[in-house]
Design a protein around this nucleic acid. Sequence first.
RNA 1: UCCUCCGUAGCUCAACGGUAGAGCAACCGGCUGUUAACCGGUUUGUUGCUGGUUCGAGUCCGGCCGGGGGAGCCA
Length: 463
Amino acid sequence: MKDLSVKTIWREAQGLAGEEVRVQGWVRTIRNSKNFSFMELNDGSFFKNLQVVFDPSLPDYEEIAKSGVGTSVMVEGELVESPAPKQPVELHAGYIKIIGTSPEDYPLQKKRHTFEYLRTIAHLRPRTNTFSAVFRLRHLLAYAFHRFFHEQGFVYVHTPLITGSDCEGAGEMFRVTTLDLGDVPKNEEGRIDFSKDFFGKETNLTVSGQLNVETFCQAFGKVYTFGPAFRAENSNTPRHLSELWMIEPEIAFADLNDDMELAEAMVKDVFGFVLREAPEEMEFFNSFIQKGILEKMEKVVASDFGRITYTEAIQALKAAKKEFQFPVEWGCDLQTEHERFLSEEVFGRPVFVTDYPKEIKAFYMRLNDDEKTVAAMDLLVPGVGELIGGSQREERHDVLLKRIRDMGLNESDYWWYLDLRKYGSTPHAGFGIGFERALMALTGMENIRDVIPFPRVPKNAEF
RNA sequence: UCCUCCGUAGCUCAACGGUAGAGCAACCGGCUGUUAACCGGUUUGUUGCUGGUUCGAGUCCGGCCGGGGGAGCCA
């Protein structure tokens, strides 16, 4: 008697007919006949179910035949070639043991549910077809990123989640404190006395690991982070989370061009890996979630990404016959409608937009020789939008210091970041990619809350 | 945070200001190598909460809570 997963049975069906096997899983549905019954069994290893055939010769047949959706069972029996075309083999049960019953108030029915409803039962939704596929892909994609970077010689760095300074750039942060909020200690000025707090200073959850990972970049050359980031912005959209996962590679002795080459190679590699490893899931997304997503992703993997400067992009948008809701002017930030037009209509493939005006980008981005633009790049993907944002970093101490001062930032907050430019500074570059956004692109799922196990968003931290 | 739509049975939705209904699910029975099984029958409600208008409120008005979509911010 072999213990087999449903995945193994499907993938190795030809050689398994006649085998005595044991499978454990959860009942998706049972169809009863007078003389025998069919059970759809899913053990989480595979997108598809195993069809179990059982009849009244089994002890407890009545109880088993009546057991509800969600019941957990152990089935022993013989694998037999299936007479029906929908599955190569089926399991003829010789023994079925009910492990855990599932009463009739089980919230998941054998019918289609809305994603909104399933979000309210996030503890049960991984048992559904869609979320089974989503979260198996989430695992594969995470693995694909690590695999890619490892094979390219990168070192994975765990940057801190608690940060002691407010110098990570824009974005509201979550306060981290052990102070008694009902009785907060105050200093002479009547302000909160953070010297009494756990770390002796004001601390927050990180919004990005970039500044920290740059320090390791200047020691290991090629590094990346892959971890959570936290944004306390009151963003209520299908594309934002308060707790999200980001991947942020950083490479030394590299310029913006190297950065884009890395980004392009990475996107093609990780997406290509998932397409190869999860064909059943991708077929499901293509059929039921977003028609054409498979072809779109195959195109992303195969195409050469376009490249255009911000200045050229503005010219292209101005020359376009299309009427935009927001007018285009050099110096303005590109709106969603502009980004879509560029990637979907002008290029029809992923495109890097580079060299943005310095006023609309972060202080650490390298100032170009024109002194008006910085060496930044955004990757725009058709049907997805901005997937990656990155830049060459300012490696010149004096230029960086001037930028910090010009933007009204407190230079003492950046002492260690500036030190990197003092001791053996190198041209270097990096980018950030939102893990959930990448997963949305790959699956065609339209709400970011449906590609993370337990979404945290304003007004909701259930589960 | 702003704009907008929504909240009715377990789920998806209907109901002109006149005492709440359908499909599916569930349950009972039947039938068939079934696979979103099929056929017949049965059960299901503090209409999100709260205050108001009215003879009468699921329906109209105010407040609150929650959800969807769009915008901004971004990943």
